[in-house]
């Protein structure tokens, strides 16, 4: 177990390093630079001074080393656009918002998806099943920004159930969370249904019936765990997709999260903010995939962790 964790940790660090390095060079390949607007028409001396301030006058390799040394020590550098602010500060201010939104969406997706999936499986080939799965197909096919706009029209303007936008009250998180979660709820619902139907056909379910257990006990204790395996392995990628999806949702609902910052930084060529966000996002994803792998060994006793995977 310890060897497994240690092995995975090394591969996680290598992955993050690779992603960070690739991003570092790619963002510098993009046309323009952080000061293209700000310093339009300035004298070459002013431009040079500005570049020197952020080490942009140095050869690329040295810039990279300076930046990487910073990252390793936990310093993501200064923002090139927001005067006097470091990337660490920006992330500290906005990241909790994105995490809150993502977590709410994740919880919605898992709860909604698993509940409907189990119901559909238990009511297999009935109108209830067909109805739920038809809704699920819609959920999977429609991108979250369409659902979000629909949600705003119906729930905000017509039903007046939710506030339009912003990030002041708890009810602010519900609609964007729901809009963000629906495609994932739909996918999880279908995975749960298939997993559940497969497990319910197993011999050991017949044994459980023969013991005199009730349907409810059988579903909860004997079936759900096995049916969850495909769902759990989907949670890693789902989390990645929820994070990228939240970039769009944050924009629609004017939520001051890391996604909004990231999009702005990318258009402004605020190199350090973009790279800092990339490092944070990719670390989070690696961590989450790692947790999913680890949880497998707890869910299915037949899975033994193998190091160096």
């Amino acid at each position: 177990m310890i060897r497994f964790v240690f092995g995975r940790l090394i591969s996680v660090i290598l992955t993050i390093w690779f992603v960070a390095t690739l991003s570092f060079f790619l963002i510098r390949l993009a046309p323009g630079n952080p000061f293209a607007n700000e310093l339009r028409g300035a004298t070459p001396e002013v431009t040079e001074a500005k570049k020197r301030e952020y080490h942009l006058d140095l050869p690329l390799r040295e810039q990279y080393w300076i930046w990487l040394r910073g990252v390793v020590t936990g310093d993501l550098g200064p923002s090139m656009k927001y005067r006097g602010k470091t990337v660490n500060e920006i992330i500290r201010q906005t990241f909790p918002t994105s995490i809150a939104l993502g977590s709410v969406a994740m919880v919605f997706a898992v709860v909604l998806g698993m509940m409907t999936g189990v119901i559909a499986a238990l009511k297999k080939n009935t109108p209830i099943d067909y109805g739920l799965m038809a809704v699920a197909v819609f959920g999977i096919s429609l991108p979250s920004f369409i659902l979000a706009t629909l949600g705003i029209v119906v729930l905000v303007f017509w039903a007046r159930l939710f506030p339009l936008a912003g990030w002041e009250t708890y009810s602010n998180v519900l609609l964007p969370g729901l809009a963000l979660s629906l495609p994932f709820a739909a996918k999880i619902s279908r995975l749960t249904r298939v997993g559940m139907i497969e497990i319910l056909g197993e011999d050991f379910i017949r044994t459980a019936h023969a013991k005199g257990l009730s349907e409810r006990q059988i579903v909860i204790k004997h079936a759900l765990r096995g049916a969850m395996l495909p769902v759990v392995s989907y949670l890693g990628p789902a989390f990645a997709l929820i994070l990228t999806g939240s970039l769009v949702i944050e924009k629609i609902f004017f939520i001051p999260g890391l996604g909004t910052i990231f999009v702005q930084a990318a258009t402004n060529r605020d190199y350090n903010v973009v790279l800092g966000t990339v490092v944070v996002f990719s670390s989070l994803l690696c961590f989450f995939n790692f947790v999913v792998d680890l949880s497998y060994t707890f869910l299915d006793p037949r899975v033994k962790p193998v190091s160096g995977r």
Binding site: T207, K221, H222, R225, G226, L299, P301, R302
Partner: peptide, 8 residues
């Protein structure tokens, strides 16, 4: 196959 692989 008659015993549940997930439970002791």
């Amino acid at each position: 196959t008659s015993l549940n692989p997930f439970l002791t």
